[in-house]
Write a protein that binds this DNA or RNA. Structure first.
Lengths: 212, 212
DNA sequence: ACAAAGTCTTGACGACTGTCAAAAGGCTGG
DNA sequence: CCAGCCTTTTGACAGTCGTCAAGACTTTGT
């Protein structure tokens, strides 16, 4: 569906080029919103703050999005299209278990460092979804995407190492995610060491998830 | 330090029985606040809402706590004294690896079911602490406590099984916590199956964390 | 070039927030 | 039993929030 907007639909009979323009505006808004959300977190981010940190006014936000949840929800869906295919290239090009492990861990620490804010926001939103029903659907959708991503890596790893996964897909995801979340939470306190610690720990765990 | 209050200190020359009374009031407020926080989450909980769901008025809250963060922070510290010793009895009384595993998993699923709201709040607060400095210290303190708790269980388990831990303490905690958080997040969607799934998964993982 | 549709700005609204101060009530020591 | 401190209530404040409407501006079809 590619980030379709069942949203505010501001223009009813949009011209052929207009619908693209609207979509572009929405994406621009979303990207700006994501920047602010990543810095302040869900709770402390207001629509006015989002508008302030962008080239738009707060009225525009409500013109392109029905309400706050609609915007956030759109942001989340937009974000997901970017995040879950992060390791796909590594999975496809790796020709040995070590290739895969090194590539995977490299990408992982890279995104931890370069997109810390976005990961913070993700864990924030997942927590918020426990209290706000309207976020639930989008959050679980992303969770499934991430789970599948980890599963692709693990099964490929098993292939290369000549074994098979010793745990099911949700378990594998929960374990890796636990390590990653720990790294995201602790990153602010020690940006130097945390990435390497994470890499080492995941590397240590990976083989344990494979059975001969 | 046992939930000491470097807080509002409302009464300066409190009578000997007065200081207890103040502390009791604080605890009552905190317990009521935790109930509301557990239901609504950190962001959506206001001081007035906390007061409404209690026998006190909103003025009293500010009489016993300097501000909102002071209250939340006190709640968190109060909560931690209850949560981290949950498995201690099991660890001490278990005489076989199976004893320990069964007891541990039992308590774990029990607290998942009976104190879901409190666990939701915990993951919410940990996420918030990434954005709100004032929560950071208390949150990491609890995290360390929980880590030590898991470590006690794992080392005891290793003893009983005649091996030694194959991962370090932070890793073990991150893995188990990942599984538990997954269960907490998913509990609302399927309260029937999630506890058993969690138990099964942890049981599957435990032996993998031990080296001969 | 004109009218219509789309886009954007601005200002306002009601509701809610954390915080505080003034005053009333209650308890205890003398 | 009264004075004085502790506790609580109540009402108000300044600020922020999401939302919306009225109008101005811009683009487009004809």
């Amino acid at each position: 569906m590619s980030v379709t907007a069942d949203a505010a639909e501001p223009t009813r009979s949009a011209r052929v080029s207009g619908i693209d323009k609207v979509e572009r505006r929405r994406i621009a808004l979303a990207e700006s919103a994501l920047k602010t959300l990543g810095e302040l977190g869900y709770a402390r981010t207001s629509l006015r703050e989002i508008a302030n940190n962008s080239e738009f006014t707060h009225g525009v936000v409500h013109y392109y999005f029905r309400d706050k949840i609609d915007l956030i929800s759109y942001c989340v869906r937009y974000y997901k299209t970017k995040c879950a295919q992060r390791y796909d290239e590594v999975v496809e090009t790796a020709e040995s278990a070590d290739d895969l492990a090194v590539g995977f861990l490299g990408k992982m620490t890279q995104t931890l460092v370069e997109e810390t804010a976005m990961h913070r926001l993700w864990y924030d939103l997942r927590a918020q979804s426990m209290f706000e029903e309207q976020l639930r659907a989008d959050v679980t959708a992303i969770d499934e995407l991430l789970e599948q991503m980890i599963w692709r890596i693990l099964t490929r790893y098993a292939d290369l190492v000549g074994g098979s996964p010793a745990v099911d897909s949700p378990t594998a995801y929960a374990l890796v995610d636990g390590l990653f979340e720990q790294a995201v939470v602790g990153y602010a306190a020690d940006p130097e060491k945390v990435p390497d610690l994470l890499a080492g720990r995941v590397r240590q765990i990976l083989p344990k998830l494979i059975a001969a």
